[in-house]
Computed example of a mutant assay.
Amino acid sequence: MSPQSRHHPPTPRPTAADAPDARLLTEAVTHLRRALRASIRTEYPWETLPMAQVELLQVLAEHSPARVGDIAARQRLAVSTVSGLISQMISAGLVARAVDPRDRRASAVTLTDAGRGQLAAWAQAHERRLSEALESLDADDRSAVRAALPALLRIADLLDPGSPS
């Protein structure tokens, strides 16, 4: 029997008792993000922004105007990828490209009112869904989530080299 034809049973998923914390946290974050995104699309079909565009809107909400190269560096993406996303978002009216006020030879991207509105609606829909889910937990679970939030935010800061921490 060749090595390729051997059947190996699936590796059992680790339990909370034997899985490293990092693996469990990765699974939880991945599952939460996927579940939230799917539930939003089911209950709010108007919410069609790809996550990459949402993340660019979030960056521009915090740092606008911004050059495409600066956005790419902040998001750790290729300039061509960001440029393509920006072009799609310009067509959708979510962002605008104009002359960079700091360097008239360059262009910068800004968030439009429509982009701000779309980002606000996206955030409100997600907060509403998370609020509903949190309300369905018992008091001990809600307290555990609340107690974990500061540490989770610190982890996010530690993982983000652009964070002011």
Results as ranks from 00 to 15, higher is better:
Leu49Lys: 03
Asp21Tyr: 13
Thr42Phe: 11
Arg97Val: 07
Leu49Gln: 05
Ala121Leu: 15
Asp70Ala: 05
Ser2Ala: 11
His7Asp: 00
Ser39Glu: 15
Val99Asp: 13
Glu135Tyr: 01
Ala66Ile: 00
Thr81Glu: 05
Val82Pro: 09
Ala125Phe: 03
Ser143Met: 03
Leu60Thr: 02
Met89Ile: 06
Tyr44Asn: 10
Thr110His: 10
Asp21Pro: 09
Ala78Pro: 07
Asp113Asn: 01
Pro50Trp: 10
Pro3Cys: 08
Ser2His: 12
Val82Asn: 10
Ala121Cys: 09
Met1Asp: 04
Met51Tyr: 11
Gly115Gln: 02
Ala120Asp: 14
Arg116Ala: 08
Pro45Thr: 14
Ser80Asn: 12
Leu130Trp: 03
Thr42Gln: 15
Arg41Ala: 15
Arg128Val: 10
Glu135Leu: 04
Ala96Ser: 09
Glu27Thr: 09
Ala17Thr: 14
Gly162Gln: 05
Ala16Val: 15
Pro9Ile: 00
Leu60Cys: 02
Ala144Gln: 04
Gln118Glu: 14
Arg128Asp: 11
Leu32Arg: 12
Leu137Glu: 02
Leu119Ala: 03
Leu85Ser: 11
Met51Lys: 13
Ser64Ala: 09
Pro20Leu: 07
Pro3Asn: 08
Ala35Gly: 10
Leu149Pro: 00
Ser107Leu: 03
Ile71Thr: 05
Ala121Ile: 11
Leu77Met: 15
Gly162Val: 01
Leu85Cys: 07
Ala92Val: 03
Pro10Thr: 03
His31Ser: 11
Arg104Trp: 03
Asp138Leu: 01
Leu137Ala: 01
Ser107Gln: 13
Pro164Asn: 10
Ser39Cys: 14
Glu55Cys: 12
Ala106Val: 03
Ser131Gln: 01
Ala125Leu: 02
